[in-house]
Structure formats: C-alpha cells, structure tokens
C-alpha cells in the first residue's frame, strides 16, 4: 500500500508559484528525505502534505483517502518542527498528551502511549517539567515524543536537527533511524544536511525551484545523477565541473568528476597549481587552479604532504567521469 501519493500538486502564494507539478509516491514504511537549496519549497511541500497550507491544485492521498479537504488533525499525520514548537505553559507530559486528549482518547490509552513514548525516548524523569527547563536535545525528543504518541500513518520532520550541536545531531540522527526501524512507520524528512539525507533515506527527493529534479535511493543519485544540479548537490565536497581543462571535450559539453575520484599521478589529464590545502586528518582536500583557469577540489584519502603553491598533475578514471550537455542534462559516455 502507498502511504502518500501526490499528483500534480501546485502551490502558489498570490503570484508566486512555489510548487510546480509535484508527483510523488511514498510507499508504506519508507523513509523519504527532501533535499534542495534554501527556498526551493521543501517546507511548503511538507505543509501542504500536513494540511497547513491548501494546495492550489492537484490531489493528495494519504493511505487510501484523498485528504485535500481534510483538516490537519484528521489526516493521520504528525509533524516535528525545526523550532520544536512545544507548548510553553504545559508540562512535557501534557505536551505529549494534548493531541490524544483532543481526539477524545480514554485516559488509560493516553497514559499508556505517553509512558511508552517517554520510555522509548528516555524522557521518564522529565515528564513533569516545562519546556523551558529542558535542554535543546531534550526538547527535540519531547517534540518527537509528541509525534509518536499519536501513532500516525505518516511522520513529517522539518529539519528537526538543525538547532542541535554536532554531537547531539549525530546521536539524534541515530535515534531517528532506530525509531524508523522500531515503528516501521512511513516518514518524510526535510533537511539541508547531506549526511542526514544519505544515511537516513530509503529514497531521496531532490527539489529545485519548486520542481522535483530527481527521485531515487541515495546511491542511485550519487552514482547516476540525472543532471548537473543533482550531481553537484549530493556529495561533499561537491563534484568538479570542467569545460576547458580537459582536452577532447565537444563544445557545450561539461565534464563532471567527484573530488574523491581524482588522484595525484605524474602523467594525469589535468595539471595546475595548489591554491589551498585543508588537512582533516583522515582526509586531505586540495583546491587546485588548473592551467586553463578553472578551480577544482581534490579529496585525497589519508594525510598528504602537498604544499600550497606546488604544481601537481591529476588523473582520473574515465569511467568515473560524468558528462553533461549545454542544458545541464546528463549524457552517457557513449554519446559524449
């Protein structure tokens, strides 16, 4: 069964067309991640799914029901916000219980669900506190708990980790992955973060300017990007695009090569001068200015003694290169 189906969904705010012909299916139990640059409409799409904004046109189906005119509380969804959005005057327990009470669930069920969610999220000893008395990480767990107790068909997360510091973000990321396994619920997750997208997703949806650019599993998108935008968006450091530095490239074509696929080699296809070196311990990143004046990034595994200002020669495996035409669409090597 499909958990969510979007057909030709459009959304305009006045004359601003924010979402354009969105078609998407989320299977039951799937973890889908929306990524895209800021302002591309990720949050808007999530809010349209939640029912907080009405779609201008198109149909939204959750489970087997068309929900275009169903209010948010009756759509069988729960949402976790970037800003936590906890009710400031209620205790942790009441924050989690409010939705169930509004549904008119009997006390015993409310009690039971809140207890099991707070155990799952390690919130037992905080149940009587107010949100102001919790740390950021605890607040976000309460927000997640508030979503869990409602036992929704579909979870919606809007950048839930972006207010947390790096260590906590990693922990919470792992917790969310574990949660997905335990609950085997369908989840949609919006993020800016490459790592979150790659590690959590069954399926990544790349958005740009309100359009879906490509949908696929993380490795599919990494290995087989449909166009230059997707190729450049996924992967960190991002892919190098060259149109002058490589010989034998037809006019209007661009060659893409990931930083990790470039190696130092005496007789490489590219040569240039090192302008900057980033030593990360496990990796070394070189910024190189080619003789043709293009800048590229090289990611070398391990530590490397290359100095700024030195001349180097770089090679790559032709099979690892991507080719794009003048409309930025990917072309297969045979056609290039």
């Amino acid at each position: 069964m499909t958990a969510l189906k979007l057909e030709n969904v459009n959304k305009s705010f006045g004359s601003v067309h924010v979402l354009k012909d969105i078609n998407l299916t989320v299977e039951e139990g799937e973890f889908v991640v929306f990524v895209g640059p800021s302002g591309c409409g990720k949050s808007t799409l999530l809010r349209v799914i939640a029912g907080l904004e009405d779609a201008t046109s198109g149909t939204i189906t959750i489970g087997n029901e068309v929900v275009n005119t169903v209010p948010p509380a009756k759509r069988g969804i729960a949402m976790v916000f970037q800003s936590y959005a906890l009710y400031p005057h209620l205790t942790v327990k009441d924050n989690m219980a409010l939705g169930l009470k509004q549904e008119g669930q009997p006390k015993s069920i409310v009690e039971e669900r809140v207890t099991s969610a707070s155990r799952m999220l390690d919130l037992d000893q905080y149940l009587t506190r107010r949100p102001a008395e919790l740390s950021g990480g605890q607040r976000q767990r309460v927000a997640i708990g508030r979503a869990i107790v409602r036992d929704p068909k579909l979870f919606l997360f809007d950048e839930p980790l972006s207010n947390l510091d790096a260590a906590l973000r990693m922990n919470t990321r792992v917790e969310i992955a574990a949660l997905h396994r335990t609950l085997s619920a369908s989840m949609i997750y919006v993020t800016h973060d490459q790592i979150e997208a790659m590690t959590l997703a069954d399926k990544i949806v790349v958005l740009r300017d309100g359009r879906i650019e490509q949908v696929g599993s993380p490795m599919e998108l990494y290995n087989n990007p449909a166009n230059r935008f997707v190729a450049g968006f996924l992967g960190s450091p991002s892919m190098n695009f060259l149109d002058r530095s490589v010989s034998g490239l037809a006019a209007g074509r661009t060659l893409g090569i990931r930083p990790e696929h470039l190696t130092l080699r005496a007789d490489g296809q590219l040569s240039g001068e090192v302008t900057h070196v980033e030593r990360l311990g496990g990796d070394t990143n070189l910024l190189v200015r080619t003789d043709q004046g293009e800048t590229l990034t090289v990611r070398l595994f391990g530590q490397n003694a290359t100095e700024v200002g030195s001349r180097i020669s770089l090679g790559f495996d032709a099979a690892a290169a991507f080719y794009f035409d003048d409309a930025d669409q990917r072309i297969l090597p045979a056609a290039a």
């Binding site: 948010p72 509380a73 949402m79 409010l98 508030r146 409602r150």
Partner: peptide, 14 residues
Amino acid sequence: VSDDLKNAGRIDGL
C-alpha cells in the same frame, strides 16, 4: 508568535 507553535496546535486538533 511562532507559526510552528500554532501549526503544532492545528495538527494536535486544536
């Protein structure tokens, strides 16, 4: 007043 807070309320059925 945070939009998210009001939206959280809407999702909770207020």
